[in-house]
Amino acid sequence: MHNLSVYQWPLPEGKNGQQAVEILQKRVEQLGATKTGTFCVDCETYQSSLGPNAPTKNVFLVHNTEHPATTFAVLESGLVLVADSLLDIFMLKLNGAYNLKKNANIESKGQRYEQMDFVIKIGSVSIGPSFKGILVEVEYQPCDIPASCFDLMREFMQGFIGPSVQLPPQLVAAKIAEPYTPKDTVQQYLDHFNSLRRTTAAGPPTRMQ
């Protein structure tokens, strides 16, 4: 797997989500990146209902279009189960023990770009119809070890995100000398989703793309 960082991009003042995404897309295209389709990372939340007195626990099911045949199930403790996509059907069978939380589906959806060995994904995050924020994902494919190539990625990202990118994301920084895995990507997205859920919509509610 390759080294990857996800950042939240704050909306510029006076712009709504759609306009902000367009600004970012324009910058990336001016750098010479080519469009290579769309991507989507979505997250469903299942809540345990083991009894009236038992504490409720969440299981997050994350799908990523980079791994179309895989479902990632993440516990609140951070434990990740990487499974076949049949896990979705299995979770429906567990109805009663784990119930799908209504109106909690959150997804990051948008354009995927490639430039040499870099992959850039600009996603707008939304829960149902309401827009929550923008997530920018940058991946450097040839290198697995964040410690070796983060300086290089920072130089690349500063080209279109700006000088605000200085440090690797917290999760990457914690395991900077270890090889990066797809599980780390899922956890980065989940962390962002959880913090974006808590925030109110940053701009007027507009459904992106």
């Binding site: 040839p142 290198c143 070796s148 190539c149 300086d151 290089l152 130089e155 690349f156």
Partner: peptide, 14 residues
């Protein structure tokens, strides 16, 4: 040090 050593001439990585 392919990914971490900057260029001797321009001092940049990319």
């Amino acid at each position: 040090t392919l990914f971490s050593h900057p260029c001797q001439r321009c001092g940049r990585l990319l």
